[in-house]
Amino acid sequence: MIENVKDPSLEAHNLTVFYQKRPAIWNLDFTLPKGKIIGIMGPNGSGKSTLLKSIMGILKPNDGWVKVFQRKIDDVRFKVSYVPQRQSIDWDFPTNVFEVAKMGRISSKGLFKRFTKTDLEIVKESLHRVNMYDMRNRQISELSGGQQQRTFLARALSQEADLFIMDEPFAGVDAASEKAIIGLLNELKSKGKTLLVVHHDLHSAKNYFDWLVLLNTRLVGSGPLEKLYTDELLSETYGGTLTSLSKIATKIEKQGLPIRHK
């Protein structure tokens, strides 16, 4: 079940990325709409984070390509905000909440330009929106999981992007933060922004997303929530019916696979 859209926010064609010789995502073809909250779902190791990283160009595709707003990612980076997994960084790093949020402004400043008053205003406003302004001087090592995630979101908001790509923003956050985050996502959506969110809780997915991308190394489905959230598709994604696929992947890891295009 793959539904395509016209004027997509994001388009993947034949996207294949190997992780240490093993296919992590494999021949993904899909288009995503604009102005929606899109959930990327799949079991552990199904390639969700890999997909996000290859959209951002952090991982280079072994085959195929991705286009964002119908352009190469390098041409539209200023329109895209990437929120990595919270656990991917060391929260003992000597810095405070405000400094982290300020990093969001660098995307428009580059390495050398000075921050202006407007920049600092934007950062301040972003911190207010995630309710972290009162904690702006706090060391990031002293934050709870939810506060860490909200700090990351403040940094993303400061980028003033049109597309937000978030890796597990709900993982390990408290209920209040989860509520605040989903509120923020909806607010961004109402302003016409597109949100691409990796998520793994099936139960809450129903209430959060407009569109689903179901992933299990291969693409299981991409389309509006109502059409995708079916027992059949979900069990295909999560149910382990694709065991022969993983056996083939293991063989490829050992023997290699001739890639067609590159």
């Binding site: 951002m56 990595p84 991917s88 960084i89 990093m103 660098i106």
Partner: peptide, 22 residues
């Protein structure tokens, strides 16, 4: 001194640094 901003953000969050085109 010149690259301080870059080095700092690279050390803190390399993936983010890359994502904003550093």
């Amino acid at each position: 001194l010149i690259f301080f901003r870059g080095f700092n953000i690279l050390s803190f969050d390399e993936q983010f640094a890359y994502s904003i085109g550093m």
